[in-house]
Design a protein around this nucleic acid. Structure first.
Lengths: 183, 183
DNA sequence: AGGTACACGTGATGC
DNA sequence: TGCATCACGTGTACC
């Protein structure tokens, strides 16, 4: 109604205007602030800001969910737990009980550390050493520890010739190939 | 000006009104959609929605950043390559400096294998053994190999008392806590 | 009552 | 010329 229920004294009307101005200003500022948080925002009209914000939030939430799942996986119980949560998934649901050997290789300058965690078996060490020899590595030190009744934990420190350096990946792969065929 | 520069024919004026209505409706809908994405939102006025959205986005972005860093750490930090045919990417672009010790624990029946790969340092072995003693473990065998000039690779086989069994996770965690405070 | 919040119609501006 | 977007003042409703 033009002027029935809403009677307002002049100062009230002015207050109203000012208040509304302030409200708009606040919202406007937040739109600006929000825009700054949305990457790759080209149009800055309200609808676009809101739309892109919605998309961005969805994307972020999805990403967080994924990363957290991954994080859970890592911290989940496995037979092997490596500190720094840097772990290899060893939990093998589909695997057969005849556990395959685990082979790990590290390279430091021209030295290489090779570690094999495997089933106790006749002649394993010899085969490993032969394999290492094939790779032109010189053994500097080695240790063979018996773990329980059935497992062996072998660690070897070796030296690489300068003219024949390998990446850790290649190394582990070659060792695996060499070892698997005799198990 | 009341009616100088802005002359509008009746249907134009009506179009204007309708268009504006549509625009407002769109924005309004997006506010609703946005509200649904913000957890723990109590007030639903525009200012609050925008404010909480801003906060939520910041929080999400922070979280993503953290998780991604952690993820990088996990996938990159080490030069370790474990077999199981699952290739680890070893490429380390953002590698960090002072490598923390890597602690690994395995449990087999009442035996436990503990392996620590860390910087060469005075008294490391003693501290480890003390820590192991604190955990009521009995050392059966151990090996300390020097890897290059700066690294140590220590492997220990120990026995757990039946009445004090630990999970590998607890074990590694306790060892880490015990070790980190002296590095 | 006094404060807060909203939707509306309207004039202005920029492509 | 139109079309889209905005800020404004205003009426209204809720507590």
């Amino acid at each position: 109604m033009r002027n029935s229920s809403s009677a307002r004294s002049p100062h009230q009307a002015q207050d109203h205007i000012v208040a509304e101005r302030k409200r708009r200003e606040k919202i406007s500022q937040q739109f600006i602030a929000l825009s700054a948080l949305i990457p790759g925002l080209k149009k800055i009209d309200k609808a676009s800001v809101l739309g892109d914000t919605i998309q961005h939030i969805k994307q972020l939430q999805e990403q967080v969910k994924l990363l957290e799942e991954q994080s859970k996986r890592i911290n989940a119980e496995s037979v092997v737990y490596v500190d720094k949560s840097k772990s290899e998934d060893v939990s093998d649901t589909s695997s057969n009980n005849v556990s395959l050997p685990e082979i790990e290789a590290r390279v430091l300058e021209n030295k290489v550390l090779i570690r094999i965690h495997c089933e106790k078996q006749e002649g394993v060490l010899m085969n490993i050493l032969r394999e290492i020899d094939n790779l032109d590595l010189t053994v500097i030190n080695s240790s063979t520890l018996h773990f329980g009744a059935s497992k062996l934990d072998i660690t070897i420190i070796a030296e690489m010739d300068d003219e024949f350096k390998l990446s850790v990946k290649e190394l582990a792969r070659k060792l695996r190939v060499g070892l698997l065929q005799l198990m």
